[in-house]
């Protein structure tokens, strides 16, 4: 069943009198439980596509449908509610609250949810446990390593049990060992049935997915399935 459906989606940015077409005529569907990488060089429009797909921005052209409803059907408050309940985000620069502890960071989406407050602690602990950071639960995020910070960000993305996790260059600020650890967790999430949309410019990271959509100059250049045999070769190469 299609969770995400894009038909000729485009995005034009207006800066003063200057128009920039960051994305054009993107058409594809992503089914629930799929793991899709969006690849492309810098400026290819992959982050713009993720922002539109993640309801962080609206497309200016075409039609984008999530859960069977087009983005235009949602008010800004409804978009916020969908982001909170159905989507999880992992950013390249972690975006943790430095003065807050691991568990406080992980609880953050619950503050804006309709989940009963009594359940927050249990849900947050479970999410932290799932990324293997139970021993760091009371630490301030500023005291963690880069890899640990990204794992906290993944736990935060998972805490509300979303349908889809958007990961924007999650290994971009990490060394290869931490990067592999983070990708292992993301791959594991996919095995548990989560839909994963991964933005990356690295081929070996993209190949964790089942499918790779490649962008160039704001257009979809390629949309292909990943062969299982090349996957293992690339991962071996990274190690």
């Amino acid at each position: 069943m299609a969770l995400i459906e894009a038909q000729n989606v485009g995005k034009i940015y207006h800066t003063g009198k200057v128009e920039t077409q960051a994305l054009r005529e993107a058409s594809f569907t992503i089914n629930a439980g799929e793991f899709v990488s969006i690849m492309g060089p810098s400026g290819s429009g992959k982050s713009t596509l993720l922002h539109v797909l993640g309801f962080l921005d609206r497309n200016t052209e075409g039609m984008y449908r999530f859960d069977g409803k087009t983005i235009d059907d949602y008010s800004s408050n409804e978009l916020a509610r969908v982001r909170n309940k159905r989507m999880g985000f992992v950013f390249q620069s972690f975006n943790l609250l430095a003065k807050a502890t691991v568990i406080e960071n992980v609880k953050l989406p619950l503050l804006y949810s309709d989940v009963h407050e009594k359940l927050w602690d249990e849900m947050a602990r479970h999410a932290v446990d799932s990324v293997g950071l139970s021993h760091r639960i009371g630490y301030h995020s500023s005291d963690l390593s880069g890899g640990e910070k990204q794992r906290v960000a993944i736990a935060r993305a998972l805490v509300n049990n979303p349908a889809v996790v958007f990961a924007d260059e999650p290994t971009g600020n990490l060394d290869s060992k931490s990067g592999a650890q983070v990708m292992g967790i993301i791959e594991n999430l996919h095995h548990q049935g989560k839909t994963i949309i991964l933005i990356t410019h690295e081929t070996y990271t993209a190949e964790y997915a089942q499918r790779i959509i490649t962008l160039a100059d704001g257009r979809i250049e390629n949309d292909r399935k990943v062969r299982e045999d090349t996957k293992s070769i690339n991962r071996h190469f990274v190690k």
Partner: peptide, 16 residues
Amino acid sequence: TREIGLRKALGATNRD
């Protein structure tokens, strides 16, 4: 500003 962006990404409404 980034914290505001993060909170909004995680589900905070304008009112929040």
